[in-house]
């Protein structure tokens, strides 16, 4: 929800720090590639599920744009670095799931049409601002700068159509619904930021506890355990047929 609360100067400063380090750029672009691919999937779901033909068409075009952006980011990330780290991120097929981009229920279904449109409007507006700044900051790298400018133009279309749809809903006498959707999204954004921070802290604490368990519990018994290490070759399994049936109800 930076579109309202963060001044452009702060955004520019943060972006400058992010893009200042050349080695971070390809990783950042690889991450963007996945984010755009995830957005493409969200827009595809919306195009599958929306009932209004004109809206389906806009969502589909939006999905095509996001997919193209994902490919542009991926190609640029590879062009800037042949490093293993970037390839690992780009080839990580679990990235979308592990970064929470996709859920079991589509974003369109879980938010509903009005809130989904508000979500698109707010996020695309934020994206357009960001990519405009990135295009400017990356002037020393013309292909990257041009890519950001191109993507920014698409984002402006996304902002425009989603705003037009929200205006249409407001004009139809449903302004409170739009206001409520925007409010809910801001609260949701703040809650997600809090959860991300809590999750990070929780992971750090859990990591410390796990390290203690690992050292204090695993360490002393490792020599005993090594004696029972698997040696390879066949192991006989008598009576397996009856055992498999008898143990169908158990997990271990």
């Amino acid at each position: 929800m930076l579109d309202q609360s963060n001044p452009a100067a702060a955004l520019r400063f943060v972006s400058w720090i992010v893009w200042k380090i050349p080695s971070r750029r390809p990783m950042k672009m690889a991450g963007f590639s996945h984010t755009e691919a995830g957005s493409s999937l969200d827009m595809m779901d919306a195009a599958e599920e929306a009932t209004r033909p004109d809206l389906r068409k806009k969502f589909f075009r939006h999905a095509l744009d996001e997919f193209r952006h994902a490919r542009l980011f991926s190609e640029r990330a590879r062009a800037l670095s042949a490093g293993a780290q970037v390839a690992d991120v780009l080839e990580d097929s679990e990235y979308a799931a592990s970064h929470g981009i996709r859920g079991e229920t589509s974003l369109y279904k879980s938010l509903g049409e009005t809130e989904f449109l508000a979500f698109v409007w707010m996020h695309e507006r934020q994206g357009a601002k960001q990519f405009d700044i990135y295009s400017d900051l990356m002037k020393h790298d013309p292909p990257s700068s041009a890519m950001f400018a191109e993507i920014c133009r698409d984002e402006e279309f996304h902002v425009e159509y989603s705003k037009r749809e929200l205006d249409r809903i407001e004009t139809a006498g449903r302004k409170p619904e739009v206001d409520k959707a925007v409010r809910r999204l801001r609260i949701r954004g703040a809650r997600e930021a809090f959860l991300r921070m809590s999750h990070g802290f929780g992971n750090m604490m859990a990591g410390i506890w796990l390290l203690a368990v690992y050292v204090l519990v695993f360490g002393p018994v490792t020599f005993l355990a090594r004696k029972s290490a698997q040696v390879g070759g066949f192991i006989a399994t008598p009576g397996s047929l009856a055992r498999a049936r008898a143990e169908a109800g158990v997990q271990g």
């Binding site: 990591g207 796990l210 390290l211 690992y214 050292v215 695993f218 360490g219 018994v221 490792t222 355990a225 090594r226 029972s228 290490a229 143990e247 158990v250 997990q251 271990g252």
Partner: peptide, 26 residues
């Protein structure tokens, strides 16, 4: 599959390969 048996395999292997398995254990 039997998830508890799989979990058992992971833990035993990580104990056997201590301390190299710290990241896998986490």
């Amino acid at each position: 599959e039997k998830p508890l048996r799989k979990f058992e395999r992971l833990l035993i292997t990580q104990i056997q390969t201590f301390p190299k398995s710290i990241d896998a254990f986490r």
